[in-house]
Structures are given as structure tokens and as C-alpha cells.
Write a protein that binds this DNA or RNA. Structure first.
Lengths: 225, 225
DNA sequence: CATATTAATGACGATATCATTATAATTTGA
DNA sequence: TCAAATTATAATGATATCGTCATTAATATG
């Protein structure tokens, strides 16, 4: 994800940048209110982290400015301990959450993840589950009911896409674009074929057939959790 | 999990052992600094709990000794109330956290769980780099100097193993076990072959040949960062 | 310097995975 | 109920990746 960090204090800035990057994000930093506002208005970020006490303005002002331009990117405010009425002011200017300095890395990531999860796609989870099905992204491992199941690359990628959109209907065009990176119609039914492969491998280890067909619409990976 | 507890005070030792075991851990105890250090250096634990005031030395010394031997096992220090500068000293010797006596069982377990959680998923980095080389684990993407390079599964897994052990020499046996999950000698030079493949693909995009051969020992992925 | 040892790379057949096609099964709507 | 539309799966040939072997290159040692 693309993150904008607006913070003048070098030590805090470096820490925040490091933590975010370690968690797989692309970070852009700004050290003044002017610069931060400029970046925020002219680029698309997934989250913006704003310090309150900047040399040439404060985070609230930037946030207000951003919202006035109809930019809905989630904003996390970093506030110093002594700052008063942070919560109320955050609400007023349309910020999503705030974090009081000093904070530790886990706190920061927890807030960032909470906000982005709330606001959009679910981020980049490391473990995806759906009932008996579990995928560990880092190990690239798929288990059904605890037993490991080997998948080919295409099968794995397809399954991951379904898991990331579980309980949502995904159509063939979306699948082609996001799993195969194909942006045109190949006139073949390869997606049906791979859905079939997946079902077979899942069927071998559990009763439930998680992949549901929605005629004329696409497929859903269905489960209660 | 396997826990080492180094504590001379019998009542504290018994309590800690009982609490940990009740929570499903295997506990080994040592009552002197000498014994504790000996255990720590010659066995693999998931966490080490060290008392500061031991009859023949203190926890800080053991901790330092452990870290000097490149053992990264999380260490939790138990300190008496009157001990000064515990936090600073902990940082200095590479301990992960400390707990002031007296403490209650819940506190202890909370610390233990926090430490092991932190260290376990912090070990699974999402982005691995070495100079120009970058691997994004979740996207399963490899870039050299910013340009994407396609790798086969085996090539990718081998590269990841090298990255996870960058600047450390890894021998062929280790590679076989961790990348191919082969626990015997196949009598062939397949690892050399894949090293060769990797080098070729890296060479195509950058001058530096990151993979160094250490004759009779193995290979190193070398870089300054 | 000569030779033995170790590593690097080219080449090859076996196998796995790929996209596609053909055919079977299912669902829909007249 | 029956044909048309849609989806599921079996089958196939093409290609990529696999592990192995053979050969060449590099390095160490006497």
C-alpha cells in the first residue's frame, strides 16, 4: 500500500517509515505541512499519517484541506501527549483515528491495519481462511482440514483471489484480470477448468464444496466466518 | 514451547515453572548462572527467562553471553523491585522485555506471549532485500534494480532462503532440507545448478553478483545492508 | 607446475503444468 | 418437456520446469 507520512521530527519519521516498510508498504514522507498537503492533494495514497505539530501548520489543517477537496483517503493523526481535545478535533476535521506519542511499532501497525481494513480491501493478510480451508501466504501453503494440499501456481492464485473476496461474487473478467493478468477475452473456458481443479482437490479432503457457482454472474467462496 | 527458566529462589522458580506448564509449555530449570548459560548455549529454546540476582553472576551477563553467541532466542528478564536502570541495561544486553518481582501469573504469561508473538511473526518478513535485490513475499515477486524478474518456484524458494540468511554461509545440506525438504544426499549437484540459474537471472539485470561461493562450505548472499 | 578436488554450466529426457478443445452435465426459459 | 445456454469435466498437445548427468572451468595442494 502507498502511505504518506507527514512528520517533521526525524526520529519519529524514520521509525514510522521503517515500521511501515517492514510490513510491506511503500512510504512517501513529507516534512512540512505545505509539502504534505501538496503530496496529499496530488497523489493517491491508501492512508495518510499526519503529525499535529508541524513547523508551518498542523495536521488538523491539512486534514481539513484534504477533506474539503473530497479526498476520502483514511487519515491517522499522530498527537503529542499534551495535546488537548484531540478526539473531538479529529472528528471535526474528518480524521479516522489518532495515536498518542510515544507509541510502539505494534500499536502503529494495529491502527493502520484497523483503519485500512475498515475502509477497504482487507489489506494484505498473511493467513486467509474460509471454514476448513486455510492459506498461509508467506509459506504459500494450502491446508484443508489441517491436511496439506498441493496446488499448482494458477490454482493457488485463483484460490487466494477467491479467499480475499470470500462471500463476494467474482465474475470471470475480474478473475482473468486479477489472477491471470489477462485483459481480454481468450474465448476459452480456462477459468471453469481451474475452478473445477480446485473443487476436486478440496472435495478430496472435506465434504463441503466451498466454491459456489452463481449462474451468469461468477463464483463465490462461501462460508459463515 | 520449550522454556528455560534460570532462577535461584526456589519459591519463584516453582511458581514460574508451574504457571508455564499449566499453559502447555515444557520447562527446564537452572538454579545458577553457570548452569543457565550452559543450557542456553547448548539447547534450542523458544524463550529464556532470566533472574537478575543469581548467586554466581547475574542475568545480564548470561544474556550478553547468549547474544554474543548469535542466539536470537527471546529473553525475558526477571528483576527485583530495587534494581535500577533495568530497562536501559536490558536494551544494552539484547533482552526483549523485563518483569518486576513480585508479579502475578497473568502478568508473566502476558509477557511471555507478547514476546513470542512478536518474535515469531517478526521473523517472517514480507519484504526481503539485499542491495538491488528485492523479494515481496506476499506478491511472490522478485525485482532486481526495480525490474521484475520471473523465477520458477524452486529458484524463488532458494533465493528466499538465501535472503533470509543473508551474509551467513549456508551449506548444501541446509539448503536441501529447507528449500527442497530433502533429508538425504541425492548424489547430484542440483543445488549448484539452481545457484547457477539464479546467478544468470540476476546477472542479466545488475553488475553485482550477490551470490558468493565459499569453497567447501556453501554459499552466501552478500551485501552491506 | 601438475594433478586432484570442487564448482559452474550446458544439455537432455522425464514430468508437471499450461491453455485449449471436446464432450458431458446442468440449468433456464419458452 | 425440450431446446438453448451455460457450466463442469475429461482429454490433449504444447511448453515450462524438473532432476540428473556430462563437460568445462576454477581452485587448492603437493
Amino acid at each position: 500500500m502507498d502511505v504518506l507520512v507527514v512528520e517533521d521530527d526525524a526520529s519519529v519519521r524514520t521509525l514510522v517509515k521503517a515500521v511501515l516498510e517492514k510490513n510491506g508498504n511503500d512510504v512517501r514522507v513529507a516534512t512540512t505541512a505545505q509539502e504534505g498537503e501538496d503530496y496529499a492533494l496530488n497523489n493517491k495514497f491508501d492512508i495518510i499519517i499526519l503529525d499535529l505539530g508541524l513547523p508551518d501548520g498542523d495536521g488538523f489543517e491539512i486534514c481539513k484541506e484534504i477533506r474539503d477537496h473530497d479526498i476520502t483517503t483514511p487519515v491517522l493523526i499522530l498527537s503529542a501527549e499534551q495535546e488537548t481535545d484531540v478526539k473531538v478535533k479529529c472528528l471535526k476535521v474528518g480524521a479516522d483515528d489518532y495515536l498518542t506519542k510515544p507509541f510502539n511499532p505494534e500499536e502503529l501497525m494495529a491502527r493502520v491495519e484497523a483503519i485500512t481494513r475498515r475502509s477497504s480491501d482487507g489489506g494484505a493478510e498473511q493467513i486467509l481462511t474460509c471454514g476448513d480451508l486455510q492459506v498461509k501466504m508467506l509459506e504459500r501453503e494450502f491446508t484443508v482440514n489441517g491436511t496439506k494440499v498441493d496446488l499448482t501456481n494458477n490454482e493457488f492464485n485463483l484460490l487466494v483471489y477467491l479467499l480475499k473476496n470470500k462471500n463476494k461474487i467474482v465474475n470471470q473478467e475480474e478473475i482473468a484480470e486479477n489472477v491471470w493478468d489477462i485483459h481480454f477475452d481468450t474465448q476459452t473456458n480456462y477459468i471453469n477448468v481451474y475452478i473445477s481443479y480446485l473443487r476436486k482437490k478440496i472435495r478430496d479432503h472435506t465434504e463441503n464444496d466451498y466454491i459456489e457457482t452463481v449462474r451468469k454472474k461468477g463464483f463465490v467462496l462461501r462460508c459463515d466466518d
